[in-house]
Computed example of a mutant assay.
Amino acid sequence: MARHPNPLPSSLGPVFTWEEARAAGVSTGRLRARDVAHPHRGLLVTPASASRGDGRDDNADPFATDRARRAELWDRARLYGRLMVAHAFFAGRTAAALWGMPVDPSGPLEVAVPSPHRAPRRHGIRSRQVSQDLVAVVEVEGVRASDPASTWGLLAAEMSVRELVRIGDAIVREPRGPGGFRHPGGALASIDDLQRATDAGRRRGIARMRAALPLIRVGSASPLETDFRLLAEQEGLPESSLDVEIRDDWGRLLGITEIAYRDFRVLVEIEGDHHRTSRRQWNRDIEKYAAYVAEGYEVVRLTAAHIRGAEPVAARIVREVLLRRGWRP
């Protein structure tokens, strides 16, 4: 029968370094037992603080799945933060995910250092060296990361113009809290901040930053909404308003619509999977759309298939409604 390893000293906690363990009198053999994980060289983790997994569940609510995957990234970032040298910081997709931007939070941790420091080399780490003029570093929930505008600029080396617009829209968005109240100071950064990042100096992807910047707008709540807006502009549809409060004649708030063509009383609602899988959301949508129609609006409902399909039809659908409502190109 296999012996259970002796308990580790409680003073070590769930995460500790090799040096801390040896100073507490723990032998090398004990540190190699199966109940101790080694996520990075020199860092040890007990089962209580082991990774929560990748958070993927094809049948789960998409928002819950994304939250779980981002929580797992935070776990990994905080673990590595125990080893990170003082001048290093999280950058690239890792920093973007930590800030809540719409990027895939999986993959290796991306760590950067300002030149002339040497980029770290560790298993599971993607490292780079960055000019000090091109990045501002701040602390976000206890870890060091490039600030939102700098992060956007660093992503330009590997992202397309469309991806940079999606990220930029997310950065400048003013979030709404309970009751639909907007928080003007809640944006991660402003368009002026992104302009300053673009003007900071030459870098890989600078042409894509310059192309993306004038396409970024305040008010887009999701990458899918950004994609529709870009598609609509490309197809010559009139300028739309984003994140619009719809009220009745007494000023009562009926709902907040993603995209509105005010002059023609046409509203575009872009529906992700949560509109289909959440019974509460589904019922709320039905009530809201009925209220919009009662006020003389026509509601166009679109899904990802209409916007990102092999042959996107979203702009054509909206165009036909606008023409019927009096728009003349």
Score class of each variant (00 low, 15 high):
Val113Met: 10
Arg82Thr: 07
Arg210Asn: 07
Ala291Gly: 04
Val218Gln: 04
Gly296Tyr: 05
Arg319Trp: 11
Val113Lys: 05
Trp99Cys: 04
Gly142Tyr: 02
Ser10Arg: 15
Pro14Leu: 08
Pro7Gln: 14
Ile171Glu: 00
Thr226Asn: 01
Ala91Gln: 04
Arg93Tyr: 13
Ala97Pro: 02
Arg229Glu: 15
Leu155Gln: 02
Asp66Leu: 15
Ser222His: 11
Ala91Arg: 05
Ala48Trp: 07
Leu79Asn: 08
Val26Ser: 03
Leu194Glu: 00
Gly42Ile: 05
His123Thr: 05
Tyr261Ile: 13
Ile259Gln: 02
Phe264Ala: 12
Glu258Leu: 03
Phe264Val: 14
Leu12Ala: 08
His117Thr: 02
Leu154Asn: 02
Arg319Ala: 07
Val293Ile: 15
Arg67Ser: 13
Arg78Gly: 08
Ser150Ala: 09
Ala305Gly: 15
Pro47Ser: 06
Val140Asp: 03
Arg229Asn: 11
Thr277Cys: 11
Arg247Asn: 10
Glu233Gly: 13
Gly92Arg: 08
Ile270Met: 06
Gly236Pro: 08
Leu79Ser: 05
Thr28Cys: 08
Gly326Val: 05
Thr17Pro: 08
Asp227Leu: 13
Ala77Leu: 01
Asp61Gly: 06
Ala96Tyr: 12
Val268Ala: 14
Asp147Phe: 10
Tyr292Asn: 10
Trp99Leu: 13
Pro329Asn: 09
Arg182Gln: 15
Val103Pro: 01
Thr65Glu: 15
Thr303Ile: 11
Arg144Ala: 12
Asp249His: 11
Ser160Phe: 03
Arg82Cys: 07
Arg203Ala: 04
Asp199Asn: 10
Gly219Trp: 00
Pro39Gln: 14
Leu230Val: 01
Ile256Ser: 07
Arg217Pro: 01
Ile317Gln: 12
Arg284Asp: 13
His40Arg: 13
Tyr261Asn: 09
Arg30Glu: 08
Leu109Asn: 02
Ala212Met: 11
Arg176Ile: 07
Phe228Ser: 01
Arg122Ser: 13
Ile167Thr: 13
Pro14Trp: 10
Leu154Glu: 05
Ala96Cys: 12
Pro9Asn: 14
Glu298Val: 10
Arg308His: 11
Glu139Pro: 15
Ile216Asp: 00
Tyr289Trp: 15
Trp18Gln: 04
Ser241Ile: 04
Arg166Trp: 02
Ala187Met: 08
Arg210His: 10
Arg52Leu: 13
Arg118Met: 10
Ala95Arg: 03
Leu215Tyr: 13
Phe228Asn: 01
Asp147Cys: 07
Glu158Gln: 10
Ala50Met: 14
Phe90Ser: 00
Ala95Asn: 04
Thr198Tyr: 02
Gly42Arg: 07
Asp54Arg: 12
Val318Leu: 05
Ser106Leu: 10
Ile167Trp: 04
Arg93Glu: 09
Lys288Cys: 00
Ala145Pro: 02
Phe90Cys: 01
Asp243Lys: 03
Leu31Ala: 05
Pro102Glu: 02
Gly13Ala: 03
Glu269Trp: 00
Gly55Gln: 14
